[in-house]
Write a protein that binds this DNA or RNA. Structure first.
Length: 670
DNA sequence: CAGCTATAG
DNA sequence: ATTTCTATAGCTG
C-alpha cells in the first residue's frame, strides 16, 4: 500500500468526535469594555510599551491591526483610546472565569492562551443522541438558520458521509450556542465558535465568521477548507520557521504541502514532525483535547530600552518579584525553582536572543496565609532577590559594560502547599527517627500530585521543619551567600553518592547497629521517564512495571493514585511487596525504621514511620495519616542499603525489569 | 536535569 | 521594527 495514501490520504479520519473551539472576540479590548462600557463605541487600543497589541472592532475600521506600532496606529486614528495592558492580571482573571464557565459543560477543556479553548463535547453529544434519539433535530441546516450560525461551506447542502456525523455536529452546533450564550449571560463576553470533528479544523473553521458568530464544518468539505487557506502558515502549528523552510523549497500553499513527497518533508523536519505536518495539511489532527490543569510555570517579564547598571537591574527585579509573588500567592502552590530571563542588546538581527538561568529554592521561603494562599516569609523577598541577582551575575559580567533590553522572572516546579498533616509527619519524623530524613512534602490526597512531589530531602540535622532547610543547606554549600539556593541537581547527585558512601562505611564499621542513620538524599520520584544513564529519577510507571528481577531489588515506598478503599482492596503489587518483607528483621534491631509494615489489619505504613511514634500522635492525626497513606501507597520500593534499609523482593509478574531506571541507577553506581 | 528554540495567543 | 507578555512542548548536552 502506498504510504502517502494510507497515512495521509483524504477522508482517512473518522468523524466520531465533536470538538468546539471557543475564541473570545478581541479579548483584551472586551475586558476593557466591560470595565468601562463607554469605550464600546470608541476606537480602543491596548498598549504595551509602544505597541498596540490588539484593539476593538471600532479601531479596526480605521485600519489598525494587532501588534501595530503606536505611532502608526495614532496616525491612522488620532482619537484612538489607548489602554495600558502590560499587566495581564485583569485578562488572566477573566480568562479564568471563562474557563470556569466552560468547565460547567465538560471537564475536557484545553486552554490555548488566555482567550481560546478547545472543548471535546463528544460525550455530551452522544448522551443527547441516546437520550432523545435525535427526534428534536431537523438537521444541521435548520440548526444553522439562526443569526450568527454558519455552515462551512455556506452554500453547502449537507452531503452526509453516512457515519452519523450530521446528527453529532447538529448537537455540537446547539451546544456551541449554549456555551456562547452562557459566556454572554454570565460574563458579558462575546465569542466565536468553530465546530468540527477535530481540533485543527474547529479552530480554522471557527475563524471563518467573526465576530460573535459560530461556524460548523461539513466534514466532507474538509479539503476545501484546507486548500482555501492562504498559506501553510495558516495551519495552526506551522510557524514562522517551518514556513520559511518550506518557502525556501518553493512550498507556499497548503496544496503544495499536501503534494510534497513525504521523504522530502521528513528530511526537513524529521519523521514525527513530517507526519504531523502532512496530516495537518489534509485537515487530519489526531491530537486529543487535554484538560488544562494548573500552570507549570508562572512568569513575568518586562522589556525596556536599556538597563546598564546593576542597581537598575536589582530595582527592576524587585518590582517583578513583588508582582510575581502576588500571582504565586493566589495560586496557592509553593514554587521550588526560580528562573531569570535576560535579553541583552546586541546587533544580532537574529532571533531576539534570551538567556535564562534557574536555581532551585527552598519551600521554607513561603508560608501559608490561610484560605489556601501563601506568602513569602518575613525576609523571603530579600533572600529571593539575592538568588535572582546571583543568577543574573551568571549571565552578565558586571565588570564589563552591558545592555539589557528585557528582564524576566519565573517560578516553577510547584508543590502543593504544606498541609497540617504533612507538617506533622515531618515534625514527628524529624524529632523521633534517628533516620536522617528531614522533610516529606505534599502528602496530599491528590494522588498524582503526590507522586510528583513525594520526595525525601537530604539534610544533616534534626531540627524543626521550618528552619531545617536553611541549616541543612549550609552543609551543602560553602558559599554562605548562596544559602537559600537549593542544592543543584549536580550537588544533589554528589551528596547522594557521598551519603551512600558514608552509610556504607558507617555500616561496615562501628555503627552497624544503627542502620537508620542512612541519609536519603534527593530521591525524587518524577512522573516522566528519563532514559539518561545517570538519572536518579524513577517514574511511577517504571515502578509499577518493575518486576521480575529474580534477585533482590532496591526499593522505595512511593505513593500512588488510589481510591479511598485502598486499605481493603490492596493491589496485588502492594500486597506482594508487603508480604515479601522479612518481618522478623523488620521488627528487630536493624532496619525497622525503613521498613514498610502492617499495623492493625491491612494498613500499610511508609517505611520511615516509627510505629511507636505513630501511636503517640493524636487520634485524629493518626486517622488522617492512615487515610492518606492508604490512598496514596500502592507500590513499594526501597533504597538499597546493604544493611541500612531492608531489601524487598521485587514484584513478580510483569516483564520490564531492564527498563527499571532506578535499578539501573544502582547498577551504574556500584 | 538546565537551557534554548519553536509555537501560539 | 518581529515588536509585547506569557505559557508550553520538544530538543540537546
Amino acid at each position: 500500500m502506498d504510504e502517502n495514501e494510507s497515512t495521509f490520504g483524504l477522508s482517512e479520519e473518522q468523524h466520531t468526535n465533536v470538538i468546539i473551539h471557543i475564541d473570545i472576540d478581541c479579548f483584551y479590548a472586551q475586558v476593557e469594555e466591560i470595565r468601562d462600557p463607554t469605550l464600546r463605541d470608541k476606537p480602543v487600543g491596548i498598549q504595551q510599551k509602544n505597541i498596540v497589541v490588539t484593539c476593538n472592532y471600532v479601531a479596526r475600521t480605521y485600519g489598525i491591526k494587532k501588534l501595530m506600532l503606536l505611532t502608526d496606529a495614532l496616525r491612522l486614528c488620532p482619537d484612538l483610546v489607548l489602554i495600558k495592558g502590560e499587566d495581564l492580571t485583569p485578562y488572566r482573571q477573566m480568562s479564568n472565569k471563562i474557563h470556569s464557565v466552560l468547565l460547567t459543560f465538560t471537564p475536557h477543556v484545553e486552554k490555548l492562551g488566555l482567550d481560546e479553548n478547545f472543548l471535546d463535547v463528544t460525550h455530551l453529544v452522544n448522551a443527547r443522541i441516546s437520550q432523545n434519539n435525535g427526534d428534536d433535530l431537523n438537521g444541521i441546516i435548520d440548526e444553522n438558520r439562526l443569526p450568527g450560525c454558519h455552515l462551512f461551506p455556506e452554500y453547502e447542502t449537507l452531503s452526509s458521509c453516512g457515519c452519523g456525523c450530521e446528527k453529532r455536529l447538529t448537537y455540537g452546533v446547539r451546544l456551541a450556542r449554549e456555551i456562547r450564550k452562557k459566556l454572554f449571560d454570565e460574563l458579558e463576553i462575546t465569542s466565536c465558535a468553530g465546530i468540527a470533528h477535530n481540533k485543527i479544523l474547529a479552530k480554522i473553521v471557527g475563524a471563518k465568521n467573526k465576530p460573535n458568530k459560530q461556524t460548523v464544518l461539513i466534514p466532507s468539505c474538509t479539503n476545501d477548507v484546507m486548500i482555501g487557506l492562504d498559506s501553510v502558515r495558516c495551519v495552526p502549528g506551522i510557524g514562522q520557521k517551518a514556513e520559511q523552510l518550506l518557502n525556501e523549497i518553493g512550498v507556499r500553499s497548503v496544496k503544495e504541502l499536501q503534494d510534497m513527497d513525504f521523504s522530502v518533508v521528513q528530511k526537513m523536519f524529521g519523521y514525527e514532525t513530517a507526519i504531523k505536518y502532512k496530516n495537518w495539511s489534509f485537515g487530519i489532527d489526531k491530537s486529543a483535547v487535554i484538560a488544562s490543569g494548573k500552570s507549570k510555570s508562572i512568569s513575568i517579564e518586562d522589556s525596556c530600552r536599556s538597563i546598564s547598571i546593576r542597581t537598575d537591574v536589582e530595582d527592576k527585579f524587585r518590582l517583578l518579584l513583588i508582582r510575581l509573588v502576588n500571582q504565586v500567592a493566589e495560586d496557592g502552590r509553593i514554587p521550588l525553582a526560580v528562573k531569570i530571563t535576560v535579553r541583552k542588546y546586541d546587533v544580532m538581527k537574529k532571533t531576539s536572543h534570551r538567556e535564562t538561568k534557574q536555581a532551585n529554592i527552598l519551600p521554607s521561603l513561603f508560608k501559608e496565609a490561610g484560605n489556601g494562599k501563601i506568602t513569602l516569609v518575613d525576609n523571603g523577598q530579600e533572600k529571593l532577590l539575592k538568588i535572582v541577582m546571583r543568577l543574573f551575575e551568571r549571565v552578565v559580567n558586571l565588570k564589563l559594560p552591558f545592555n539589557i533590553t528585557l528582564l524576566g522572572l519565573a517560578f516553577s516546579k510547584f508543590q502543593e502547599a504544606r498541609t497540617q498533616v504533612s507538617r506533622s509527619i515531618a515534625n514527628f519524623l524529624i524529632r523521633t527517627a534517628d533516620l536522617e530524613v528531614q522533610s516529606i512534602t505534599s502528602l496530599s490526597s491528590d494522588g498524582l500530585q503526590s507522586i510528583k512531589n513525594y520526595q525525601l530531602r537530604g539534610s544533616p540535622t534534626q531540627m524543626d521543619f521550618d528552619t531545617i532547610s536553611e541549616a541543612s543547606h549550609a552543609s551543602y554549600s560553602s558559599d554562605i551567600s548562596e544559602s537559600e539556593i537549593e542544592p543543584s541537581p549536580k550537588k544533589n547527585k554528589f551528596s547522594f553518592s557521598l551519603a551512600k558512601r558514608r552509610c556504607l562505611a558507617t555500616n561496615s564499621t562501628t555503627e552497624t547497629a544503627s542502620p537508620s542513620k542512612l541519609r536519603v538524599a534527593e530521591l525524587r520520584l518524577n512522573s516522566k521517564e528519563s532514559d539518561s544513564a545517570d538519572v536518579h529519577m524513577q517514574s511511577i510507571h517504571d515502578i509499577k512495571s518493575t518486576t521480575t528481577v529474580d534477585n533482590v531489588v532496591p526499593c522505595v515506598v512511593v505513593p500512588t493514585n488510589r481510591s479511598n478503599a485502598a486499605s481493603t482492596e490492596t493491589s496485588a503489587g502492594a500486597a506482594a511487596i508487603v508480604a515479601d518483607i522479612d518481618t522478623s528483621n523488620a521488627q528487630t534491631s536493624s532496619g525497622h525504621a525503613a521498613t514498610a509494615m502492617h499495623v492493625s489489619n491491612s494498613t500499610t505504613f511508609p517505611p520511615i514511620v516509627d510505629p511507636e511514634v505513630f501511636k503517640e500522635l493524636p487520634f485524629d492525626v493518626q486517622e488522617e495519616l492512615l487515610n492518606q497513606w492508604s490512598t496514596s501507597h500502592e507500590t513499594t520500593t526501597t533504597t538499597e542499603s546493604h544493611a541500612n534499609v531492608l531489601t524487598v523482593k521485587a514484584i513478580p509478574g510483569t516483564k520490564k525489569s531492564k527498563n527499571n531506571t532506578l535499578h539501573r541507577y544502582f547498577i551504574t553506581n556500584n
